[in-house]
Every structure is written in C-alpha cells, then in structure tokens.
C-alpha cells in the first residue's frame, strides 16, 4: 500500500499536473471551519504522488479561511522552496459548481483530478465527481484508499471495501479519483507555507444559479428516531412473553466432553460451513 518512491518524475511525464479539488470543511464536533477530512486526504495523496506539481482548485467563496490550511500542507517536499498554488473560481454558495469546474479543467488540459467523496458543507450529496466525470467523459473511481502506480494510459489504485478489504483497479486516464476516509492521514498544515502559498483568482467565470436548490427547505438536522422493537402480539400472553424474553437467545449449540482434536475438527467444520475458512488449503488427510 506504500506510495511509489520516485513517482514525481514519472507522474509528470505521464499525466502532467495533478489537480486536487478542495472544499471548506466543518469539524464534526465543534462545527468550526477548516480542512475537509476527505479533501485533505486527497491533497496528501496528491503531494505524495506529484510533490509540488499538485495544483489546488476551489470553486466558491474567495474569503474562505480554510483555503490557506490546504496551502499550508506544502512542506516536507523534495523541493524545499516549493509553494502551493490554488486557482479560485469565485462563486456563491447557491451557484452550480459543475459547469465552471468542468470548463476550467478542460482548458487546463488536466488528466488526473483528486477529490474527496462528499462535501462537508451544503448539500453534500457526493454528486460532484460523478457529474464532472460525466460532463468531461472521464473515468471515475470512488472510495480510493491508495494510488499504487501511474502508467502512461492508466492508474492503478486500491479501492476500500467494507470490513477493511481492498480491491485493485486499473483506471484509464484521464480520470477522476474520489478519495475515501481510510486513505493515509493528511500532514499537518503549517503557518509558513500557508502564508507563502499563492491564490490566483480566475477571472472569466460566469456561474449559474442552481435552480432546484431554491425550492428546498433547509432545517437543522433532527436526530433520527431509534427503531423500536415492535411486538406483534394479539393477546396478553404473547406480549408478556415478548417482554419477559431474555435478549440473548440461548439457542446455541454446546459441545462438551471432546478431546482437543475433536474440538478442533468441530471448529474447523463450523468455520468452513460459514465460509470463513476457505477450503483450498484442505489437508491431505481428508
């Protein structure tokens, strides 16, 4: 799962500049603005892959304080004088970010874009990577935990699956990669690089209002109701039984008076029946 060592030179040859889409985040407990967790991981992945060749893109408010936090991640690179560069596409929160971003990426000739899966402000539907990829005609992978290798035509990535499993995928370039929360943790943001970083405001952006959004009603999130254990009993006897029943069902199988070898056989047979042990290393005695 480690990143390739001398990736930078190869990456520049293969894909040119790597872009990372960033957004402002909210701390999950305090609600304070800062880096978004998945976006910061995407920036970290890009810095490991391309070093100072990573270019940041943000569509939104120009006064956003979190942008400097991302620029502060440009340290510990091969080129110690490197400073972060960020292109800002100014627009309001109610505007649709997809068309300007798609247009800008096309004009820049980007071939590889990293981003988080879901935003931490606004709707947070996670649709932006999909709409961008669809509009640009690129391939898209979500839930990426690591980038293993970059070739001239494709990128090899590891995708995170439930229960800590991983799947290896070849993604054709140009591609959009949405980074999962289980990717390597982002480096800290440092004050000096954050001050030195350059924010360039893109001039000719004509954002459109997001029409569908105007009809929605926003409200503070209500706690979701806990699902109750509904007892469908027609008479008092069954209701009492359901109320008095112990929660831990005592219907397990208990095996006693076994030798360790018999016990081991029973355990192995159980694990095989539940498909936890795979049968391919079946011992020769069977």
């Amino acid at each position: 799962m480690s990143q390739p060592e001398n990736a930078t030179a190869e990456t520049v040859d293969a894909i040119g500049t790597v872009h990372a889409l960033i957004s402002s985040g909210r701390h999950p407990v305090s609600g304070r603005p800062g880096r978004a967790r998945e976006d910061a991981r995407a920036v970290e992945m890009g810095l490991t892959l391309a070093g100072a060749g990573l270019h940041l893109v943000h569509a939104g408010n120009a006064e956003e304080p979190a942008l400097r936090d991302y620029l502060g991640m440009y340290h510990g690179l091969d080129d110690s004088a490197a400073r972060g560069e960020l292109s800002l596409l100014p627009m309001a929160a109610e505007d649709d970010a997809v068309p300007p971003l798609a247009h800008w990426l096309e004009t820049q000739g980007a071939r590889m874009v990293l981003t988080g899966q879901r935003a931490e402000c606004g709707e947070g539907s996670g649709m932006l990577p999909y709409l961008l990829a669809e509009r640009l005609g690129w391939s898209l992978t979500t839930g990426v935990a690591a980038i293993e290798a970059v070739a001239a035509t494709h990128v090899t990535v590891l995708q995170a699956l439930p229960q800590g499993q991983r799947r290896r995928l070849d993604v054709r370039l140009p591609c959009l990669i949405a980074v999962d929360a289980c990717a390597p943790a982002p480096r800290q943001s440092a004050f000096g690089p954050a001050r030195r970083g350059k924010i360039e405001i893109v001039e000719d952006v004509t954002p459109e209002r997001d029409a569908a959004r105007a009809e929605w009603q926003w409200q503070p999130a209500r706690p979701r109701p806990k699902r109750l254990k509904v007892v469908k009993a027609t008479n008092a006897r069954e209701r009492f039984r359901a109320a008095a029943a112990k929660s831990s069902a005592a219907n397990g199988q208990v095996l006693s008076d076994l030798t360790p070898e018999q016990a081991a056989d029973k355990l192995i047979a159980y694990l095989r029946a539940e498909k936890i042990l795979v049968d391919d290393d079946e011992p020769a005695s069977d």
Binding site: S248, G252, L258, L267
Partner: peptide, 25 residues
C-alpha cells in the same frame, strides 16, 4: 459467553488452538 455463543466448545483453549493449527497443516 457460552450462553451467548452460537457454537460453544467446552475445552481448554490452548489445546484446541494447537490442535486447530495441527489440523490445518
């Protein structure tokens, strides 16, 4: 734990684990 378990084996844990490793070769 035996009451909670779907399969409970009443035996010494060390011996059973050693036997499992042996059975799996």
């Amino acid at each position: 734990m035996v009451k909670r378990a779907d399969l409970a084996i009443i035996a010494d844990g060390d011996a059973v684990l050693a036997a499992v490793c042996e059975r799996l070769g």
